[in-house]
Amino acid sequence: MPSQQPQISDLPAITTYLTGHNHTGKAIVEETRPANWTVYDNEEMAFNVAYTTSQFPANLNGNTDIKTHDKVTSSGKLGLVNPNGTVCRTVDFAPGFECMMHRTQSLDYGIVIAGEIELVLDSGERQLMKPGDIAVQRATMHSWKNPSESMWARMTFVLQDCEKLVVGGEVLGEDHGRGTEGLPMSGN
């Protein structure tokens, strides 16, 4: 079962800055939010959900998007993907850790922020990624491995809901794999 706790890695702390407008229409930083980590796999992987949207295009009027984000994240029902929306999530990986082989029904942009990460595909293919590299993950069965024996690695992901993927007449749906007990299925 995942647990909420402070950051477990030695990487820099994360803060999310939500912008908005003052009464004259000028841009302001409306809110500052420290990271809220959920820990998995014996404290070898941690998630921080920076933001979600629940419709496209997003509705920013009257802070509808912020209210909806807060409702989604406090519900305890957010899976890896938010149906009809997006999820911006940072993931920290312990040295030597490889997360579960999994598939999300989504189009994801995964950006390496710190350290190195290996993208591992179910075909056996591996791709080493360095800071600044981006994986466009298109509903494939994959895992992420931190090849370092001593340094934590960090990636930021933007997951976008997608149409059901059909390959060879078979629908390839969401599959969380091991180690995510307590993480709800996305239901998309």
Rank of each mutant, 00 (worst) to 15 (best):
I14H: 14
E118T: 08
A50D: 13
D65H: 07
T15Q: 11
K77S: 06
A27T: 02
H69D: 06
I66N: 00
T15G: 10
N84R: 12
L78H: 05
F97H: 14
Q7S: 09
G96K: 12
D92W: 10
C88G: 06
G20R: 06
F93L: 13
M45S: 13
N63S: 15
Y109T: 11
V29L: 04
M101Y: 09
Q105L: 05
V81N: 11
F93Q: 03
H23E: 07
P57N: 08
N42R: 14
I8V: 15
P6Q: 12
N22C: 02
G76C: 00
N22I: 00
G79N: 01
H69R: 02
I66C: 05
A114W: 03
A27W: 01
M45R: 12
T15L: 05
F56L: 14
V39R: 13
V81A: 11
A13T: 05
Q55I: 11
V39N: 12
F56Y: 02
E116A: 11
S54H: 10
N36R: 06
G62K: 02
H69V: 01
L107T: 09
G115C: 08
A94T: 08
P83L: 03
T68R: 04
I28P: 01
N22P: 01
D108P: 02
V112P: 05
R89L: 08
P95G: 06
P6M: 14
G76P: 00
E31Q: 03
L121R: 00
Q7A: 12
E118L: 09
I66Y: 01
S74P: 03
E30I: 00
Y51L: 14
S74I: 06
K71A: 14
A13P: 02
S74R: 04
H69C: 08
A35K: 03
N48M: 15
K77P: 00
T19V: 05
M101H: 07
V87T: 03
G115V: 01
P12S: 06
K77M: 07
A114D: 15
N82Y: 10
N84M: 07
G110L: 07
N63G: 09
V72T: 06
D65C: 03
A58G: 09
A46R: 07
C88K: 09
T86S: 08
T90F: 15
S106F: 13
P34G: 07
Y17N: 10
N61Q: 10
A114N: 10
I117V: 14
G62W: 04
C99N: 14
A58T: 01
A27N: 01
G115Q: 09
A50T: 09
P6H: 07
